[in-house]
Design a binder for these strands. Structure first.
Length: 826
RNA sequence: GCCGGGGUGGCGAAAUGGCAGACGCAACGGACUUAAAAUCCGUCGGGCAUCCCCCGUGUGGGUUCGAGUCCCACCCCCGGCACCA
């Protein structure tokens, strides 16, 4: 297949770009800035096709904007801390440091062999002290601000990774990395107080107009902010040992309070234990046993269980109706949300309805649809409407009733508006070695003491043994653990947990603005100039992890005075997956395509072109060897076309456009149309596939013209120049070679994007489709912009039109200028 | 169940309410060749009486001179969330 010498060409230009620092970021020129960023990879050792797609997309955007005279910041780095390095150490005895550095080296080579235009002078790797020092520094700033705390709680423990996980990292009860089942352990851990920002994290989703709806919805759901009312239900009689004389519930539907005919608390609600202590309730004991069993079985399996429950033998008073209602313990109320107790409104909540049916409890309808006179009592009605059958609030709309309820009861402190959030604070400590040491010591006298900023960095010791058996390896290194307290000088012990690697990636884009800064994580000025990231590109799998943490970081850093922006990424493109045979590539399925092999067989330009052409970037892409060959064929065709004509264009003069022949005008117009479309499609929605299709179309036509028509060398040269510049954002190596063979001494990568010659853009002839009753019947070629009368005469004199309207009445004629003429007949 | 995104040739995909299927892949026919590969030219939604006409963008309705595109109802696929009160 090797039709053009891509091996030599690609190496040659990669070396030239590197040597001449062609992609070095310039801040000085007065141009507009643009920050284009692809999610930096974990240095696993090899790029996979997902990376290739991600970085190719970003590269086209970067190259295009460079040609459009933007100051482009397009950096790359390494998310270099994390488990695989440590696992490799345990398994093969390689130090994580060596393993990681070697992997970085290889992946950097691979990225360069793809011709991605990075400014490598800004490279960062999170595992080096010059980076993680600032993790520690930021930790201390967060600490001072009261956004870091240590707490003992039940946390997600991954037995495989031997470390704890944040909530959002335990996906459906499984570890996000290794997929093993998570256990709950009671441990003391460090947290970032991300919940302090939950309101803003939700609210600001609205300003992220350049984010996919999908991602915003996922974040909104994850944060799970809901506004409702807390209502206290008085206990009819005191429960021994229970702290209050009421049970409080959270509801978003306080308008249905009148329909609350029972109350349900979680099996884990404290009052359950009190009742168990004071009364011997066989049924309850039995239920709790079952509940525990079920919980272990279904602990993390998803799905809705049958609703079970048992009466606690107590009643509370519905504050609106003053009726005594029974209280149940059940398996369907979550202790972790709201107060762990809910009011049971079977008429207007499907879950309560199920439970009421099960227990034969009264069902009282208190909401009717606004457009009906009565309630539909055949099933649950969960929508809002008009309140009926309820003291004080009957006749009110749901929204008004909610307000009235709070008004009525706030004085007695029975009801108040509140917000509930599902989001939990971010657990950031990890019992692992290969991460950023947490800059805290435990002093015998002073307790928890944060280090001083000038004691940073806390260097990760290298003389470590990796046994893989429990506990952080750091805790075994005495010279690391034993320190003096920075306050009182007494003996102290260092924190041996390290930070979640998502801390590293929460601010790396800021470091890219100022990667060599030795006195601060980044300078305010530089961050002000470059931020926010104008285009962020990566996989959707980070929708609620990395992207949420980063948003949180930016808001905190803004409040600390380091930033003036509210959001880190103004535009986000989540690219689709690369599939083979309709499935995600994976070792177990044996359907992995190694980028390295594709590069060796077809070259980088082909790989890039195929990946960009096969589907628009946001859609999944089906890998096709034949498609790759097609891309290669196209490049070969361009290569051949150029070399078939190189002799005639080599020493031509500059083009003078005044006396072009019709054939020349035709092809020159086509060039300008192609240029316009290619640029628009890149800019609009990154629809590179249609951009490339336009280039292919042009190539077909140009090749036809060169064979069958007379086009003067000056124009041929001009066309090759323009065409090659456009193509170069997709296939930079081959175009660089053609550019140089054309006799240019500069680089195509440094050219400006060509201007569209609007004098040669519009056709003066157009084709008008003639429809009769909306069906295509004929076409006519006419000069553009003629009057309707002239067109009508031509249309009506068409033989085909005559044939179709013969014997019928013409009711109406519609003319859309230069496009279509529709005749309505009967 | 809820939320989001989709259903267009054999396949990947194109189409500001105005000629459905651009571009590519596969397939088929032809040229070149002793032959093959490569390359080049052509055909390529279905039906059919093959320069004609009919049907055709998940299904059924609607709006419109005109609907893949807008509206209503439904079916199916993919992704996310899932007893969140």
């Amino acid at each position: 297949m090797g039709l053009y010498p891509f091996e030599t060409i690609e190496k040659k230009w990669q070396a030239t770009w590197k040597e001449k620092k062609v992609f070095k970021t310039e801040e000085e020129k007065g141009n507009k800035k643009i920050f284009i960023l692809e999610m930096f990879p974990y240095p696993s050792g090899n790029l996979h096709m997902g990376h290739v797609r991600n970085y190719t997309i970003g590269d086209v955007v970067a190259r295009y904007h460079r040609m459009k005279s933007y100051n482009v910041l397009h950096p790359m780095g390494w998310d270099a801390f994390g488990m695989p390095a440590e696992n490799a150490a345990i398994k093969y005895g390689v130090h994580p440091y060596e393993w990681t550095v070697k992997n970085i080296e290889n992946m950097k080579r691979q990225l360069n062999s793809l011709g991605i235009s990075y400014d490598w002078d800004r490279e960062v790797a999170t595992c080096f002290p010059d980076y993680y020092k600032w993790n520690q520094w930021l930790f201390l700033q967060f600490y001072k601000k009261g956004l870091v705390y240590k707490k003992k709680s039940k946390v997600n423990w991954c037995p495989e990774c031997k470390t704890v996980l944040a909530n959002e990292q335990a996906e459906e009860g499984r570890c996000w990395r290794c997929k093993s089942e998570v256990e709950l352990k009671e441990l003391e851990q460090w947290f970032f107080k991300i919940t302090d920002y939950s309101d803003e994290l939700v609210k600001d989703l609205d300003i992220l107009r350049g984010w996919p709806q999908k991602v915003k919805v996922m974040q909104r759901n994850w944060i799970g902010l809901s506004e409702g009312v807390m209502i206290k239900f008085k206990l009819s009689e005191k429960v021994e040992g229970y702290k209050d004389d009421f049970i409080e519930v959270f509801t978003t539907r306080s308008d249905t309070l009148g329909g609350a005919t029972f109350m349900v608390v979680s099996a884990e609600h404290p009052i359950v234990k009190n009742i168990l202590d004071s009364k011997n309730n066989e049924e309850l004991i039995e239920f709790l046993k079952d509940y525990e069993k079920e919980k272990i079985q279904n602990r993390f399996t998803v799905g809705v269980n049958d609703k079970k429950g048992v009466s606690l033998g107590i009643t509370v008073v519905n504050p609106l109706t003053n009726e005594d209602i029974q209280v149940f313990a059940s398996n369907y109320v979550l202790m972790s949300y709201g107060t762990g107790a809910v009011m049971g409104v079977p008429a207007h909540d499907a879950r309560d309805f199920d439970f009421a049916k099960e227990k034969n409890l009264p069902i009282k309808y208190v909401i009717k649809p606004e457009d009906k006179d009565t309630c539909d009592e055949s099933s649950v009605y969960e929508d809002e409407g008009i309140v009926v059958n309820s003291p004080h609030i009957s006749g009110l709309k749901s929204s008004d009733a909610k307000k009235k309820i709070v008004e009525m009861f706030q004085e007695e402190k029975i009801a108040k508006f509140t917000k509930q959030i599902r989001l939990r604070d971010w657990l950031i400590s990890r019992q692992r070695y290969w991460g950023t040491p947490i800059p805290i010591v435990y002093c015998e006298k002073c307790g928890i003491v944060p280090l001083n900023e000038n004691d940073l960095p806390v260097i990760l010791p290298t003389n470590v043994e990796f046994t893989g058996t429990g506990g952080s390896p750091l805790s075994n290194i005495d010279e690391f653990v034993n320190v003096k307290c920075p306050i009182c000088g007494s003996n102290a012990k260092r924190e041996t947990d390290t930070m979640d690697t998502f801390v590293d990636s929460s601010w790396y884009y800021l470091r890219f603005c100022d990667p060599k800064n030795e006195t601060e994580p980044f300078s305010k000025d530089k961050a002000k100039y470059w931020m926010s990231v104008d285009q962020y590109i990566g996989g959707v799998e980070h929708a609620v992890l990395h992207l949420l943490y980063s948003r949180f970081f930016v808001k905190v850093l803004r409040d600390l005075g380091f930033l003036e922006i509210d959001e880190p990424f103004s535009n986000l493109l989540t690219q689709g997956m690369v599939l083979k045979d309709g499935e995600k590539m994976s070792k177990s399925k044996g359907n992995v395509i190694d980028p390295e092999e594709i590069l060796a067989t077809y070259g980088a330009d082909t790989a890039r072109l195929f990946i960009l052409f096969a589907a628009p970037p946001e859609k999944d892409l089906e890998w096709s060897e034949q498609g790759v060959e097609g891309a290669h064929r196209f490049l070969s065709r361009v290569w051949r076309l150029f070399h078939d004509n190189i002799d005639i264009i080599k020493d031509t003069k500059a083009l003078v456009l005044d006396d072009l022949t019709k054939d020349e005008v035709d092809i020159y117009k086509k060039l300008n149309k192609t240029l316009l479309k290619a640029g628009n499609d890149i800019e609009d929605k990154f629809h590179f596939n249609t951009s490339i299709a336009a280039l292919m179309e042009f190539t077909n036509e140009f090749s036809f013209s060169l064979r069958n028509k007379k086009i003067r060398p000056e124009l041929v040269k001009k066309i090759f120049e323009t065409f090659t510049i456009i193509l170069s954002v997709f296939a930079p190596h081959m175009c660089e070679e053609i550019w140089s063979e054309m006799g240019n001494n500069d680089l195509i990568s440094s050219q400006n994007w060509p201007e569209v010659d609007t004098n040669y853009l519009e056709d003066d002839i157009c084709v008008i489709a003639i429809q009769i009753n909306g069906k295509l019947r004929d076409k006519i070629m006419v000069e553009k912009d003629q009057t309707e009368d002239v067109i009508e005469d031509m249309v009506m004199s068409s033989l085909r039109v005559k044939k179709f309207i013969e014997g019928k009445d013409v009711l109406k004629k519609i003319y859309v200028k230069n496009k279509i003429f529709n005749i309505v007949v009967k």
